[in-house]
Design a protein around this nucleic acid. Structure first.
Lengths: 225, 225
DNA sequence: AGGCAATTTTTGGTATACCAAAATGATAAG
DNA sequence: CTTATCATTTTGGTATACCAAAAATTGCCT
């Protein structure tokens, strides 16, 4: 049974559709409809929906179809506050426990980001960025921490992707990442913590700007009315 | 549909059995067997099992019955490291955002703990202790943070309960809690952070001692061999 | 025309049946 | 006595059928 379970495949597919916007925020995802549409039975579809709900990408409602999450600015900010704390902790632990190889690999990711920025490859740049943060969480050698961080990151994937489009500050990202990597290489926990904190705070500001521009999610406001 | 779903009731029951030790760590919980035993079908039992697995109380194994989790010291320490960070953050945010009523309620919990300690009511003392920490997380007004903190806390419930039996230091707990409450009342984030950090560190030491005494879980060692 | 009520439809929740893969145990060969 | 292999059994995974509750619709009554 080395092959991933069907529910997991469905979850992966759904996650993909949600994060890429093929399934718009607020869209209903009835387990019957979606199951038939994807040619599977309700059981694994149900399980996949639960998985994504747990990840925060879907919201379950009593006696109604689950809908694609459309987080408010407050919710995103809360998530970012949380992820900030987790990444600061990750950085601290990684300074203690990361192997030289792992730090080298992180440096490698940073280098790849430089290349992608030079090549103006937005998507690759972004995905490597996510990988960079994931790698640090893994290097903390704290499995739960890594787990929760990954969950939070996937929850924020879409909004970070959208806000990162206005990439006036790719160079800032690279500079900050560079400081973080240097901190890790020097095993300087204070430096890593400080720079990580600052880095996430900047991301938070970017996202706030993004929300203001796009007008606080029309659909959300309508639903609240 | 105000009544909790059957799967949730099963999960609640199972959680109860696990935390109280009626289901020993390492015990197998096949969905067929347990479902028949509880007089329900496999479907909600399956869902309940997934819920508890997500909470970390059960561990899923490919093509084998799930078993009751029997965390290693390292895993518990990782969880505590994480919860320490989350509670420090909670305390900081609570200083900013908690209402006066909420802080008063937290003070009330502290007073109840004093009474329970005086009455030598272990269980009530412990449960109020848990409520104390939950209340601070809630007062942070960060829903995700509260959510994750609750999850982590329930995961650690059993080991904390067991280690808290050797309650030579109930007075220490009360003293530390008192400092935390005073910090909240004074909205002194630094004090709250510092005392929370210290408090959890002490708990961590207690639990380490508990593990050493009880000999690092025989069953775990056998299974690893 | 507007609101209310009965009915219809859709929803998730649950039970059950079936399947394929993997663990287990028995058995035979070395 | 050990080991390899084959049959059996048990497991979780999946599909399907049924149910009850709640949402949505229709049409009636005011």
């Amino acid at each position: 049974m080395a092959t991933p379970t069907l529910a997991e495949q469905i979850a992966k597919q759904l996650r993909h559709e949600i994060l890429l916007g093929e399934l718009a925020p607020g869209a209903s995802v009835g387990e019957r409809e979606k199951a038939q549409q994807m040619g599977v039975s309700r059981t694994p579809m149900r399980e996949a929906i639960r998985l994504l709900a747990q990840e925060g990408l879907l919201v379950l409602r009593p006696s109604m179809s689950p809908i694609v999450a459309d987080p408010t600015l407050k919710q995103v900010e809360d998530d970012l506050t949380l992820i900030r704390a987790l990444e600061v902790l990750s950085g601290e632990l990684a300074c203690k426990f990361a192997s030289a190889d792992e730090i080298e690999a992180i440096r490698g990711l940073q280098n790849r980001m430089v290349e992608h920025a030079a090549a103006n490859d937005m998507l690759a740049f972004f995905e490597t960025d996510m990988g960079f943060h994931r790698a640090i969480a893994q290097a903390s050698k704290n499995e739960r921490l890594d787990e929760m961080h990954g969950q939070l990151l996937s929850r924020l994937w879409r909004v970070r992707y959208l806000s990162a489009r206005q990439a006036w500050d790719r160079s800032r990202v690279l500079t900050q990442h560079n400081l973080i990597v240097e901190g890790l290489e020097a095993r300087d926990a204070d430096l890593v913590k400080q720079e990580t904190d600052s880095h996430i705070l900047h991301i938070q500001r970017n996202i706030q700007g993004h929300f203001r521009k796009d007008c606080p999610s029309l659909k959300t406001m309508e639903r609240q009315a």
